[in-house]
């Protein structure tokens, strides 16, 4: 069981959360010419690192906020959690 500290609600079990994937992926900016390459990178390409991974989780059975979690993908250790709008590192 993972325990995730929601920045809004405190420490909760993983059962209350839904995963949202890599949080470092940036959507191409609006109102700009966007190449196929840029769409490809945004939609499909993922670093999928072994080690520290900044990811989105949705506290769907709690406060329903999206949050960011810095977690190790090989040990599952959670280093820190952030509000969705918070800048990380």
């Amino acid at each position: 069981m993972l325990y995730i500290k929601c920045p809004h609600c405190g420490l909760r079990s993983q059962n209350e959360f839904a995963y949202g994937g890599d949080a470092s992926v940036k959507r191409p900016e609006l109102n700009k010419e966007i190449s196929d390459q840029e769409w490809d990178e945004f939609v499909y390409l993922r670093k999928s690192p072994r080690g520290k991974h900044l990811e989105l989780w949705h506290h769907v059975s709690g406060c329903r906020q999206w949050i960011k979690v810095l977690r190790d993908t090989s040990t599952h250790e959670i280093f820190n959690t952030y509000k969705s709008e918070e800048k990380v590192g």
Partner: peptide, 13 residues
């Protein structure tokens, strides 16, 4: 298990 992982072991939920 539903989140990126390189651990070759599972989680109970």
């Amino acid at each position: 298990d539903g989140y990126n992982s390189y651990a070759q072991r599972g989680n109970l939920p």
